[in-house]
Write a protein that binds this DNA or RNA. Structure first.
Length: 272
DNA sequence: TCGCAGGTGGTCG
DNA sequence: CGACCACCTGCG
């Protein structure tokens, strides 16, 4: 199966900024600046040029992709709101004008961000691909490559940490199995995130923002600590203060502000 | 060789 | 509560 969807007159979208701002791990840059990857069980190749998004996909309808890329949201208005509330964030926004928050599946974000803990990006990506290839469902051949979804809660719950050894998750394998068991028994309804093993405050914030569309969620990771120190003078240990500040300043769009700040600090780091 | 990387869980004071 | 510390793994 092969679909093609065109979205025209799209502002505030840049594939690199969107797929490399730390919110997702299954998209890969292709020559020419397009991105190939998979959303849920749908592989796709996404490119953008002069206001037009072109999506070639191995599944999912137009509505799915419109929703996944959050195209219904007016990011220009959000940027104006944030810049109006705080002058320091303007610089951060300027570094990542084309960031959009992908609307990923809750389970996908739960798995991804449990794996992300105390880990680095190349290895996170590797683990996720190993997990999908080894234990996920085949999602068909797309542009000459085989794609696999992540294993469902039920599938993962039926495995042991030992079974997952080839995935190279380290101690996170145990977290994943325990969490899968919990999610699998709560059919349909998601259990409270804080009850999931491997889900602490930071991972929970990421799941809320990237998986549940809670745009006010403000994940504080090492990069956000750094940028909040650099830009606003916070002590890097004062996570409570940062969250309170974000709630006060950025209100319903704290999570989007976080993405600009995160991307800004990452880009800054690359030049040093 | 050793520290580090999108933190968390467990233990103490 | 807040401060520590161990922790799989792969890379520089």
């Amino acid at each position: 199966m092969m679909n093609e969807f065109i979205f025209e007159n799209i502002k505030d979208f840049n594939p690199k900024e969107t797929f490399e701002c730390g919110q997702c791990f299954r998209w890969e840059a292709m020559p020419g600046g397009s991105y190939m990857g998979i959303a849920g069980s749908f592989p796709a190749h996404i490119s953008y040029s002069e206001g037009t998004i072109n999506i070639k996909s191995g599944g999912g309808d137009r509505d799915f992709w419109e929703n996944y890329l959050d195209l219904g949201r007016d990011y220009s208005a959000i940027k104006r709101y944030l810049a109006g509330r705080d002058s320091l964030i303007k610089k951060a926004i300027a570094s990542g004008e084309g960031i959009r928050i992908l609307r990923q599946e809750p389970w996908e974000t739960i798995v991804s961000f449990i794996i992300s803990a105390n880990n680095n990006i190349p290895r996170i990506k590797g683990c996720i691909e190993n997990l999908a290839k080894g234990f996920g469902e085949p999602c068909g051949e797309f542009e000459g490559r085989a794609f696999y979804s992540l294993p469902s809660p039920k599938t993962l719950a039926s495995l042991t940490a030992e079974d997952l050894a080839p995935v190279r998750l380290g101690y996170r394998a145990d977290y994943l199995v325990k969490t899968a068991k919990k999610v699998a028994t709560c059919c349909e309804q998601l259990p409270p995130l804080c009850e999931l093993t491997g889900v602490g405050p930071k991972v929970e914030s990421c799941i809320r923002l990237f998986g549940l569309g809670q745009m006010d969620s403000f994940p504080v990771d090492v990069w956000v600590k750094r940028v909040m120190h650099e830009l606003y003078g916070f002590d890097e240990k004062d996570v409570k203060g940062m969250k309170a500040f974000a709630a006060e300043k950025f209100g319903p769009y704290g999570g989007i502000a976080q993405q600009y700040l995160f991307y800004y600090m990452r880009e800054l780091g690359k030049n040093n």
